[in-house]
Nucleic acid binder design. Sequence first.
DNA 1: ATAGGTGCAAATGTTTTGCTGTCAA
DNA 2: TTGACAGCAAAACATTTGCACCTAT
Lengths: 134, 134
Amino acid sequence: MKNENSNQPYYLTRQRLHILEILKNTKIHPPVEWIYHQARKEIPHISLGTVYRNLNRLNQLGLVQRLSLGFPFDRWDGDTSPHSHLICKKCGKVLDINVQPKEDLVGQVERKTKFKVENFKIDFHGFCSDCKAK
Amino acid sequence: MKNENSNQPYYLTRQRLHILEILKNTKIHPPVEWIYHQARKEIPHISLGTVYRNLNRLNQLGLVQRLSLGFPFDRWDGDTSPHSHLICKKCGKVLDINVQPKEDLVGQVERKTKFKVENFKIDFHGFCSDCKAK
DNA sequence: ATAGGTGCAAATGTTTTGCTGTCAA
DNA sequence: TTGACAGCAAAACATTTGCACCTAT
């Protein structure tokens, strides 16, 4: 729906590079607002619109990924390698986890349907160690 | 994050029952607006706020499920049994598919982490038969 | 030089909410 | 009878966009 294959030219601006660096250096899968606040520490006049535009651009370029996990806002991940997510239903924490099924799920799906599958995501919902105790 | 275990009392109003019926009788995983328009055919003065409130309530009750699939709006599913979804990147179509991995993914995750996993979702993104041709 | 990017503010689109009256239990 | 719900409209919230200026290439 959103991922046009864009071979358009693009510039490496300070804002864009810094946003990318922020995402590559955190594991918290932050929302836009958090990225914006981080970015302002380095580039005080950066605007929220610029952050949104760059995230969308970096996503198109395959350098970051948008996570739609059921929160009222998107979260962002600087890690585009295949991996899954653990989402805490209570505190909203998101952790990476590697569970690559041995079965060929894509093959199964394509044999059963007429879809051409490009990728799949597995999200685990539950409670993190801090929250499950309470 | 959103799924409080609500054992609160609730009424079976005409609006609520009709919204539930609409969702149980479609396979298109519709957005709220579509449900609203359907509902107005039967209950012309039903309000959009009522549709939203009832969907959230039915979701709490475990009778329907909210789907956050990366569209700018949520979609809704009247089928709460374990199943996965195929999402067309071009036209936005969403289809059900049954691929229950034979492996115990939840077990794998719980052994690797300190999470208590309640459920997981697998979403397949690609192109439907109509769209992949073009 | 120029196409793409930035900042700012306004606009958009989705979802929630306050309030008053109504209805299921 | 009464507390949950409905309708309506306003508000809240995340995200996008128009415009004038700027800058990476």
